[in-house]
Every structure is written in structure tokens, then in C-alpha cells.
Design a protein around this nucleic acid. Sequence first.
DNA 1: CAAAACGTTAAATTTTTTCTTAACAAAATT
DNA 2: AATTTTGTTAAGAAAAAATTTAACGTTTTG
Lengths: 182, 182
Amino acid sequence: MNKDNQALERMEKAKDQVIGAISETMDLYGVTPSAGNLYATMYFEGEMTLDEMREILGMSKPSMSTSIRKLQEIEMVKKTYKRGSRKHTYMAEKDFFHSFMAFYCQMWDREVKMNLEAIKQSEKELKAIISDDAVSESIRKEAQEHYDMLENSKTYYHWLEDLVKSIRSEEIFEFLPKPPTK
Amino acid sequence: MNKDNQALERMEKAKDQVIGAISETMDLYGVTPSAGNLYATMYFEGEMTLDEMREILGMSKPSMSTSIRKLQEIEMVKKTYKRGSRKHTYMAEKDFFHSFMAFYCQMWDREVKMNLEAIKQSEKELKAIISDDAVSESIRKEAQEHYDMLENSKTYYHWLEDLVKSIRSEEIFEFLPKPPTK
DNA sequence: CAAAACGTTAAATTTTTTCTTAACAAAATT
DNA sequence: AATTTTGTTAAGAAAAAATTTAACGTTTTG
């Protein structure tokens, strides 16, 4: 079937378009190129084993192993259980809403936690300066300014917390409904 | 004033806490370490010139120049006009809401545009395969599956577009109000 | 129980990115 | 107009990250 080979070639081209775009996007998200490429490839395939991945991407097995682990961490790939084969199989999460939620919630949670903790420590130090009468007026004033700025910034982090909460609970879709699948 | 020096040292420690945290966060966002560090430093300072940055960070001037440019791109730093000095001065955007909006809207816009374009091209190819009667049934079926998957994924991108819109218009704050500044 | 299959960890290599020094271009002051 | 000041671009060096080859431990199968 010559027509079929032609069609298959054309299909590869079609897939590569999207694979390239997804891969590039993920790159911007701080996912390594090969992990991005792997995910995008899996997006078009069903279950895959590490060897199949290595085969199709022309890369080493440890490379696939580490990429898959990273993709699992951000919940873009799930381990699947296939009876018979003793090789592990994995599958791409195809619901981008899920990926979006998992990725950003994880990221923002970490941001909030880290920064609020740092602010807490910092404010403790600043407070000590502010309430020490032996320190000159101008320095205490500066400390106070920094303190106020930090205190003010907390507003943002708490908002971000709320955002994460509304995404996890899916309340956000009441405000911003998922468009209907035509 | 020995007490003052002590206080200043303590203040540096307080600032460094937060600088470290912000810097690390920005790192996760794909901003280079030195740009992150620069922003976090400027967060505590007023207007700054390139030479002051170089001085305080102990880095080269071209480094500051490129970092500042990147920070301007994502709207985390604004150019300020200071009469008198002919050196350029810059100032950190301290409103994290603004930074959040600028950064993610830019990112998501690019993602939507890139991927929808790729999908469009890809679907064109797939359609050609699907409607070619000379191609075997099984291949046409596979093409149709890919097509449907792509078509379905558009839902997500359109949602992301809506999200960006509601952030830009600040409508999102009606749903998720900024917590009051105590 | 020995040998093979599978996945992961460790060490080494390659590639990419970031940063610096040096050269350059534009603007301004003398 | 010549010299100095300021910022950027270009090329090279240093540092960091990604990938591969090699070695290891576990599980399975003959």
C-alpha cells in the first residue's frame, strides 16, 4: 500500500507539529527539553514502556527513567498496570486541566510557604531593631519601612493561597466555566 | 554608634532572608539566578543605577544590563526618570499582583497562540488523511482519533484565554478578592 | 540456583547556559 | 572637535545542566 505509507508520513508530520509546540511550551515551564519531548510524544501514544520510549526518541534508558519520574511528579504521566508484561507501563495525562491544576498548585504552594516563612523570620529581626531605643532614629525608620512593605506583601501570598484553594476545589470553574466540547 | 552598626548588620540579615526566598522562587519561574537576585535586591532599595547594582551584587555591568532588560520584559522593573543624573535609573515593581498578572498572562498568551496554531496545521493534515478513500481503514481511524483528541484539547486553550482575559480586566478579583491590608 | 531482564544509581562526558572581559557605538561635556 | 561617560554587543571563559555509558541491585525465569 503505497498510499498508506504516504499517509503515515503525513500523520507523522501532523503529530510533529503539535509535539514541537507542546514541548516548547513545557520548556518555558522549566521542564527539561527531553522530558517535554517525551510527554508530547506520549500524548499521541497509548501505554508505553521505557524501552519503547527509548526506541522512539532515540535516547538512553536512564534518560527516559529520569524524565518519566519528573513527569510523574508534576502529574503529567501516570503509571499504568498492564497484566502480562513485567515491564512498567506509563501513560500521558491527556486532560490539560488536570495538568494545569497539578503543576501550578504545586508551584504556588511552594512559593507561598517559602516566602511567608522568610518574611516571618525577617520581620522578627526587623521588630527587634525597631523597638531598640539605643538605635538611631534613621535606622529604625528604615527598618520600619521594610517591615511595612513585607507586611503588605502578605496580602498577595494569601490571595495566591486562595487561588490554589479554588483551583483544587474546582470552584474556579464556577467563575470561569470550561467551554463546552463542541 | 556601635549599636547602629550592629543594627545594620541585623537588617542585612533580615533582608537576605527574603532576598533568598524571592530569588529562589523566581528561579522556578525560569528567571536566571542573577536576575532573580537582582530583583530581590532592588525590592528593598529605591531607584538604582546600573553601577549601583554592579557594586552591590559584585557582578559585571553587562550582566546587570541583560538582567534588567529581562526584568523589564516581564514588567518586574520599571525605568524611572531622575532629573540631574544622566545615568538610567530603575525601580523594582513592588506590587506582586502586578508582577503575577504580567508574567503569567504573557506566558499563557504565548502558550495558547503557539499551540492553537500548531493544532490548526496538524488538523489540516489529519483531515486530508481522513477523507482520502485510498487510505486504509485502520490508518484513517487512527488519524480520526488524533483529530478528535486535538479538537477536544482546544477546550483547555480557550479556557486559558478566558483566564487571561479575566486577569487582565481584573474581573478575577471579584471572584477572588484581594484580602484586606490589615 | 544460575542467568537474564529490568530499572535505577553513579561517574563521566557533552552540551547548553551564564557570566566576564574586551571592543564598540552613542551621547554629552569640556 | 576631542575626550569622557554610559550602555550595549560580541567573543571567549567559566559554571551548570543534561545526557550517556557503565555498574549495581532486584526480580524473574528457566
